[in-house]
Amino acid sequence: MSHPSVEHRRVLAAAVLGREPAAPSTGAEDGEPLRAVTGEIRDISPHLIVVETPEGGEERLIIAPWATAWHGGDTPPGDLPVGARVTMRALRDGRVVERIWADTIRLTGTIVSIDGRKDITVKLDCGPHRGRRTAIIPYRASGRLRVRHPQFEPGYLFDAIGVRKDGVSLALLPATSQPSHPAPPPPYTGMQPNISGTITWSDIFDAEERGAAYPMVEPSDAACPDAGMSCAGLPYLAIGSLLHVRNVCASRSASMPIVACGCVAGRFCDRCVQCGTSPRGRIAELAPASFVELGGELIDGCFNAQIGWG
């Protein structure tokens, strides 16, 4: 079934159940609000960055003296190449940049094939909506990646962060540790008002998009045959429902709509260890902009989170 207006679903559901319709929002419990800016670098100096936003506009932002950048490795912001696609975390009403990630990609999926001895070529099945992707693991990164993927063979899950260079996807950092055997689903513990787990990000969203891909949607509603599976004991929600996400590590929270089916996230049963050990299971994949505005660090790949809905 097509979705004539998934935003309208919130209004209709609120009306029929007699509750107040909620709207997406962001909010920091402490500290100042963060803004994510995405775009393509037009010009860069150690103190100023000019980017072209996806809508075609231009943004001139000040680079803070303490700012750091990542482009396959830590690098001074002034050394980033012109033309790189960046996601930035900005402070002070979004005018001062303190963290830049350039050409950063995330390779999440099931391994289809592995070739090569030194530089390894991995083919990934990224789920029914996202198709297949091919990534290269350079020799220098392979040890680090394989130690976090104890079952590095076709049929097992793979999740890595990397960069796109000259049209090639390089996987460089492991996102999380994968368990050596798939874990059984958690025992039933009743419906908790707040569910905890790990929240990750994905690069399949449009550049400026904000929202989440949620695994527990009815397969027939979302035209997503693999959905409805989760390790975190999640309830069923719909595309268009509002999800309240709280980043436990950074004490920031936001409400965002569910915009896609997150069936790939539902297959993972790993934990996030950014601040303490999270319960097992991925709750959702966020758009990079939403992830950054919640205080997430793209190259860490996840944060411990609690969710609510309504």
């Binding site: 679903r9 209709l12 559901a13 009815e218 309830p235 069923y236 929600l237």
Partner: peptide
């Protein structure tokens, strides 16, 4: 219905 979706314990028909 022109739209139908499920949220928690409810199925909605519009």
């Amino acid at each position: 219905p022109y739209d139908s979706w499920r949220e928690l314990c409810w199925r909605f028909f519009a």
